[in-house]
Design a protein around this nucleic acid. Structure first.
Length: 296
DNA sequence: AGTCAGGCAACGC
DNA sequence: GCGTTGCCTGAC
């Protein structure tokens, strides 16, 4: 993927901001609000409305999208932002693997065709989903931003300040009681123990990511206290690029009940969904999830 | 005031 | 395996 080829002549744009050719289908706002990431904030740079957030340890990146779908990104960041947002994904090829005669899935895709699976840094993905258990999106956001503000590294760019997600060592050092004051409740213990396990080398996330067998990788993640099948699957899908994984939460249960008359639960529902939606089941899940959340 | 939310672990069967 | 229950917190 070479972003340079996608660049347009962009007269009149503020210095340092590059306009990148429209990528279709892609919807920046929907993608950042589709329950994958929780730390991007609205920002305005040189009079342009967009979003800002850290990608891993980087300074905050600014991204905006115009009505035609063209992206505005500071030129040096373009490659990193493209990769993060999944703009290199071959959507026709992915959708070609979906069940062919599925009108319900087609309706979900038509509702949010611009959703992409984001490639997230592994540790912040794991940590954020540990804190997501039995929480609503707004609260996950608030907790995530608070943890970043208190223990993350403040980074600055284009007049914006944002905080990277604190490293495992930092949260391990902070202690469970301090984490608890971020309104984490019982999740404080899980987050602290996960941070300590990773800081202490008991779990190697890089090894999890490079594991060929997705079942082995999932089992490794589930050794962590507070990480069950759902959270492990979210980490595999959003952090490890394992698109065959299909996280099932209450919204997905609802949408499968309504759209497919499926009243199975647990392992049986899991097995059916993986089998039915196929090698990119995780992408199907993302369309169905967003569709359900916004229309039910 | 009670219920419920984008789960998990521990326990009982 | 399968179903039940407690758990922190905030929003309604």
């Amino acid at each position: 993927m070479t972003v340079v080829d996608e660049k347009l002549a962009s007269p009149g744009l503020p210095a340092g901001l590059d306009l990148l050719r429209p990528v279709h289908p892609f919807d920046l706002g929907q993608t950042l609000d589709s329950g994958q990431v929780f730390h991007w904030e609205r920002a305005r740079v040189s009079g342009i409305d967009g979003f800002a957030g850290c990608i891993g340890e980087s300074p905050p990146r600014f991204v905006a999208q115009d009505e035609d779908g063209a992206l505005l990104v500071p030129a040096p960041d373009a490659e990193e932002v493209f990769r993060y947002l999944g703009l290199d994904h071959d959507m026709p090829a992915i959708q070609a693997t979906f069940p062919g005669d599925d009108a319900f899935l087609a309706e979900a895709i038509a509702f949010c065709p611009g959703i992409r699976l984001i490639r997230q840094p592994l540790w912040e993905c794991l940590a954020t989903f540990i804190t997501s258990s039995l929480k609503q999106v707004a609260h996950i956001r608030a907790i995530s931003l608070e943890i970043r503000r208190r223990w993350g590294v403040p980074r600055e760019a284009c007049g914006m300040t944002a905080y990277s997600y604190p490293a495992p060592e930092v949260l391990a050092e902070a202690g469970e009681e301090a984490l608890r004051t971020c309104a984490l409740g019982y999740r404080a213990k899980s987050l602290h123990r996960a941070a300590a396990a990773i800081a202490g080398g008991e779990i190697d996330l890089q090894q999890v990511a490079s594991c060929d067998d997705v079942d082995v990788a999932r089992a490794e993640l589930m050794r962590l206290h507070g990480v069950g099948e759902k959270i492990a699957n979210c980490v595999l899908l959003f952090g490890c690029g394992r698109w065959e994984t299909f996280p099932i939460d209450v919204w997905i249960e609802r949408v499968l009940r309504r759209g497919y008359r499926k009243r199975l639960r647990g392992a049986r529902l899991q097995g059916w969904a993986e089998d039915y939606f196929g090698p990119h089941a995780g992408y199907a899940q993302q369309y169905l999830f967003h569709f359900a959340r916004k229309t039910f």
